[in-house]
Amino acid sequence: MTRGWRGFFRRIGISGTMLLVLGTTSLFAEFLAPYRYDAVRFDLPYAPAVWPTFGKGGLVVPVLTLRDPVRRRYVPSGQTVPLRFFCRGEAYTMWGLVRSTRHLVCARAPGRLYLMGGDLFGRDVFSRLLYGMRFSFLLSLIGVAISFSIGTVVGLVAGYAGGWTDRILMRLSEIVMAVPALYLLMGLRSIVPYGLSSEAITLIITGSLAFIGWASLSRVVRGLVLSLSRRDFVLAAVGAGASPARIIFRHLLPNMSYYLLVSVTLSIPAFIVGEAGLSFLGLGLSEPHPSLGNILSESQSLETMNSAPWLLASGGLIVLLVVLFNRLGDVLREASEEMEGRGRGPS
C-alpha cells in the first residue's frame, strides 16, 4: 500500500477527498462567503441568482431593481458595481480568534452578489449554505464522537463482563432503540425551553442525537467483543494471565478499530439528517442562524417553491453530504476486507 499523502488520498477515495474539500471550505466560511449569514437586504426579497459578468474594468456585478413587489419580478437596472477580490467588507471573527475584514469577493451596495439567489430577507443563500454546512459538519462530528465513546465503552463492558451486566446494558440499549427515533428527539428537545441561545440549542440537539446513536453502536461493539473473545490470540492472552485492561486495549480494541471506523463513518449521515429534520420542523437551530434544515424549511410552502426554487439547494446539499459519507464508509469497508484477505494469506 502506498504511504504518505498520495496513499492517504487513494485510500479515502474520491468521496473522502470531496468531503475534505467541503469541510475545509466550510471551516473558512467567514472568509469565503461574500456576506454574513444574517446580512439582510429588505429591498431584495427572493432575489434571483446574480452572477458577475465582464464589463467596464473587468468583472462587474449587475444591480437589480424590484419591478413588481407582489410577484417579485426583478429587472437589471443597467447600473453595475465592480467585483473586487480580497477586499475589505463586514468585520468578522473567525473561530473566535482571528479578527479580520477581508473577504474573498465583495460587491458594494447597491449591487449584491447572489451566487445562488436570496431568501425572503434578501440574505445570500450561498453564504447561508456555507455556514449551514459547517454547522452540519461540526454537529455530526461532535455527536459521533460522543455516541462513539458511550457505545464503545458500553459494548466493551457488556461483551467482556457478560452475565447480568450484559443483560442490563443490552436491555437499556433496547429501550433506547425501541422508542421511535423522531418521537424521542421531539421529546428530548422539549425538555429545553424555547428561546435559548443557539449554542445551548446546538448542544441539546447534538446530545439528543448522540443519545439515540450510542445504542446500536454498543450492540455492534458487543458482538465484535464476543466473536473476538473466542479467537486463539485472546484465549492465549487470557491463559497467560493478562489483565482485562491489557486484553481490552492491546488485543480487542486494535482488532476492531477498522470495523469501528467504518461504522462510525456510516453513522454520520444519521446525524446530518437528524439535525436537518429537527431544524426543518422548527425544533432545531432557529433563525437567523442557518442550518441546512431550516434553510430547507423556508421553502415548505408551494408559493416559495415557485418563486425561489433555489432554496431547495439545501436539500441537495444534504443529499450530497449523505451520499459522500455513505460512499466513504463503503470504500473504507472494501479496503478493510482487502486487508483482511491479505492478512489471512501466506503469513
Partner: peptide, 28 residues
C-alpha cells in the same frame, strides 16, 4: 438505490409536492 438511501424523507416529500404542483396529476 444509493440515491434512495441518501435522500432524507422530508426532502423527497417536498420534491413530490413540487411535482404535484407542477404537473397537476396529483392533489396537493
Amino acid at each position: 438505490s444509493y440515491l434512495s438511501i441518501s435522500v432524507p424523507s422530508f426532502f423527497l416529500a417536498l420534491l413530490g409536492l413540487l411535482l404535484a404542483e407542477k404537473t397537476g396529476w396529483f392533489p396537493i
